[in-house]
């Protein structure tokens, strides 16, 4: 009952959150300066042309009336038509979503592996020069934002030592057999490792830019948490059992030290997804974030709305997953 109740309750609050996000984004992008109609018409269009086009897109109606029309459509799965691309928003957005998801999850994976390894190594070799080195590296990684890492990586591995691609998602001349837009996942499933490599060599630098600051946060927090756990009685008792230091850290301390880290990683992961907007632009990566910037530049109102709502759905989804993992890791929460 506990789990189902948690999920149902969460879905309800998610619905309320999404409604709030929809209201805010809808009104804000209509209040700020900039007019999509002006962007579409050539110079010298008559007032009559402007009025006709405005009416065609329903922009002559009051903002609440527009919201009502759009909202009713959304509830039926119709997010409207993109003004610039003249295609359904939902299809456009869903087509771009896999690219961003793959990039974000790859970045998260790198951050967890690198940050986790650094934390475990720092704990194993605590109070040595190695731990000091990890702390310094972490501090440096954290004090540079993701987009600056992006520029630095482009300079290092795209210009000075051109070993990775710095633009796009996949080499355009390649023949892609994919039926979904989850290229990376599908290339693995189809065992087309040549394509996997090409994809990774495009994704590695943007993923690293996103992962470096998060890896540093994970390393610092998990190491701190591990060090505190290492002083607890049950860890001391386990030491008397004859286990090696590595095993004591891995089996006794780590499961308990993970809990506080997990909460923070959830929050930070949503920041990372937010970071994809700039990073995708920097690397001309064809994901949601890149599309979002184009949509804002062109004042493509329905597309902006669709993208923002989708980002909100992703964020609440991540939070739900974190809560469920927390319950799975902490037996005290399982019997509530």
């Amino acid at each position: 009952m506990g789990l189902l109740r948690t999920i149902l309750l969460r879905l309800l609050t998610t619905a309320i959150t999404l409604f709030g996000v929809a209201v805010i984004v809808f009104f804000v992008i209509r209040v700020v300066p900039g007019n999509p109609i002006a962007m579409m018409l050539p110079p010298g269009a008559t007032d009559e042309d402007i009025a006709r086009l405005t009416a065609l897109y329903g922009l002559d109606k009051s903002i609440p009336a527009q919201f009502w029309i759009w909202g009713a459509g959304v509830l039926q799965g119709d997010f409207g038509t993109s003004i610039t691309a003249r295609q359904p928003v939902l299809a456009m957005v869903l087509a771009r979503l896999p690219a961003t998801l793959e990039l974000s999850v790859l970045a998260l994976l790198i951050a967890v592996l690198v940050g986790g390894a650094a934390a475990l190594t720092g704990t194993r070799l605590r109070q040595t020069k190695v731990e000091g080195g990890i702390d310094i590296a972490g501090g440096m990684a954290l004090s540079v934002p993701d987009f600056l890492w992006g520029l630095l990586l482009i300079l290092a591995f795209g210009v000075l030592m051109p070993i990775f691609h710095i633009s796009g998602r996949v080499t355009p001349s390649l023949d892609l057999p994919f039926v979904t837009n989850f290229y990376l996942v599908e290339s693995l499933i189809r065992l087309r490792l040549d394509l996997t490599l090409d994809l990774l060599s495009h994704m590695l630098l943007p993923a690293l830019s996103l992962a470096i600051p998060l890896a540093a946060i994970i390393a610092q927090l998990l190491k701190q948490s591990l060090k505190e756990t290492m002083h607890l009685d049950y860890v001391t008792l386990a030491r008397t059992h004859g286990y090696s230091e590595a095993r004591v850290i891995w089996r006794e301390a780590l499961p308990n030290a993970l809990l506080p880290t997990l909460t923070l990683v959830g929050v930070q992961f949503t920041f990372l997804i937010g970071g994809t907007v700039i990073i995708e632009r920097l690397f001309s990566y064809e994901g949601l974030g890149n599309m979002a910037i184009d949509a804002v530049i062109n004042r493509d109102l329905p597309l902006i709305q669709g993208i923002v709502i989708l980002f909100a759905v992703i964020f609440t989804g991540v939070n739900l997953v974190v809560d469920l993992m927390y319950a799975a890791l902490n037996p005290r929460l399982r019997h509530g």
């Binding site: 607890l232 009685d233 049950y234 001391t236 008792l237 386990a238 089996r251 006794e252 499961p255 308990n256 890791l329 902490n330 037996p331 005290r332």
Partner: peptide, 12 residues
């Protein structure tokens, strides 16, 4: 050990 409340691993 002295304190039975802290001497068992809470997650195992």
């Amino acid at each position: 050990p002295q304190d039975p409340l802290t001497a068992l691993n809470p997650s195992r």
